[in-house]
Design a protein around this nucleic acid. Sequence first.
RNA 1: GCUCCCGUAGUUCAAUGGAUAGAACAGGGGACUUCUAAGCCUCUGAUGUAGGUUCGAUUCCUGCCGGGAGCACCA
Length: 571
Amino acid sequence: MKEEIKKLIKNALKNLNLSQIEFTIEHPTDFSHGDYAVNVAIVGAKEAGKNPQELASDIKAELENNLPETIEKVEIAGPGFLNFFLSKKFFENALKRVVNEENEYGKNTRLKDQKIIFEYTDLNPFKSFHIGHLMPNAIGEALARLAEANGAEVKRANYQGDIGLHVAKAIWGMKQNLSALPKDDDSLTEKVDFLGSSYSFGASQYEKDEEAKNEIVEINKKLFAKSDNELNELYKKGKEWSLQSFEILYRVLGTTFDYYLFESETADIGKKIVEEGLEKGIFEKSEEAIVYKGEKKGLHTRVFLTSEGLPTYEAKDLGLARMKDDKFDYDKSVIITANEQKEYFKVVFAAMEEMMPEIREKTEHITFGLLQLSSGKMSSRLGNVITASSLIADVVKKVKEKMSGRDFDEDFKDLVALAVTVGAIKYSILKQTPGKNIVFDFEKSISFEGDSGPYLQYTHTRALSVLEKAKGLSLVDLNVKQPSDWQVTNLEKILYQMPEVIKDSFEDRGPQKLVKYLIEVSAEFNSFYGNQKIVDENDEHSAYRVVITHAVATIIKNGLYILGIPVPSKM
RNA sequence: GCUCCCGUAGUUCAAUGGAUAGAACAGGGGACUUCUAAGCCUCUGAUGUAGGUUCGAUUCCUGCCGGGAGCACCA
């Protein structure tokens, strides 16, 4: 529709010999200003040598020569906006479209030849999966699904730091407490807790105790060389436990990765790239380390190979880029990390630009904000973390209390409680612009009311329940015609916008746009629901209201899916 | 010190340079007891500060104030 209006205006401008004017089309915030507002007369006033009102009425006259049946009228308002009001016919067709497309509604094929790889979550084995990691997972998954909804072929990659000093710290910690090493048949929770405390002990001793530090550095070298069997054994166990526990959470959160990439694999490739670059003069030797001088591009210097000859994270990231390109010949690679790595990536990209410009060109870095506890900074190094699984358990408990009145059997209740929990947590992350910090407070951040995930889920189940009732009374006819005396509702005035939202939400890398849209649809529906009885045998408008309800359910369901939020059938 | 990000109701968040700055929570008031009250209706309440650009600035530019992050062998 937007395109159609654009065309109409361009035609009108052409007839007025003003075709060079640029303009924007948007939805006014207030329905009284119509369904689409165009600023062409304001922007073009100067060029046309007329005041905005005059120009607006000229354009309006031009438009009215040839108005399609989807547009009811055009009005001039405010400082010279042209407001387009869509016709009842348009809304009837739009509703039909939702109902016909069902699960496909909202999607498009704009990116159908695009292959995009998303890298997110990036957990480090041996460290815990804490609530901070929920951010990249929620955002990355939503962006990946948005890309799919725009027609792209998507792969999901998880890049994990399975080698390096942090691992050595954890292994050192494990060694100090071998008697407590969990056995194979111990629970995964015990194993993971053991790793967590080993890591934080190792990390703290590394800073406090010179001797421990030396031992850890030594372990790090041996791990790289795989030269010590005892260490290799501990490493193998620890890594396996970590990955197992992560996998359980991915499943709960709804992410399935296509690639698991490890630093232990990218290290050699990265090192080779840096060595090549050194010969070409792109990297330089400085104090025995190999560095990239970012200063030549207004950035700072970073070390790519240590004086010991070991590749740093920087070098590994170069190796990773090449590796991803080899695995999946992508058109775009999107990396999602914390915003504290913004400057870091600028330097890595600058080096990449010189070493492999074709890859740099198709790589994009998106950041998410820090999740800070109201009680202070959280770090697995200090051990004061809230793990993702403990948060989930706490929220599940709260949800179940809320569900105590429901007459569901226990298994189903568990299922629903988990879905609502994941919905509440993910929503609290997705509702805001990625990149900004979140101050996390359990009571305030996890909400079940109002602007929340459960509100959307609840609205959906409520719509289903209305449809259920309608079905019982045989009042469901999805092909029913719009009643002749039908007054178009506010709800219908937003239902048709979903495809535009899906497009914008991905283009702007902003899942919060889709979130906001779904909230608007839900709020309008709840209002609609409260205003009148939807299903009413004695009301000839009832059948049409049922179709609208069906469309609402479809939109929320599809929208939640794209956000990566589960959709319970009852709650 | 240098670089980057952020300052919006009491609180947590929205707002491609557009019309009267939206929600939610908290607080005040209310309705129905009918399809799920995790709901609905209603009221109160905000752009850190000083300039600039613009027909129009929360949005762009500059200074100041306040908060956060990054800046050499960690990831």
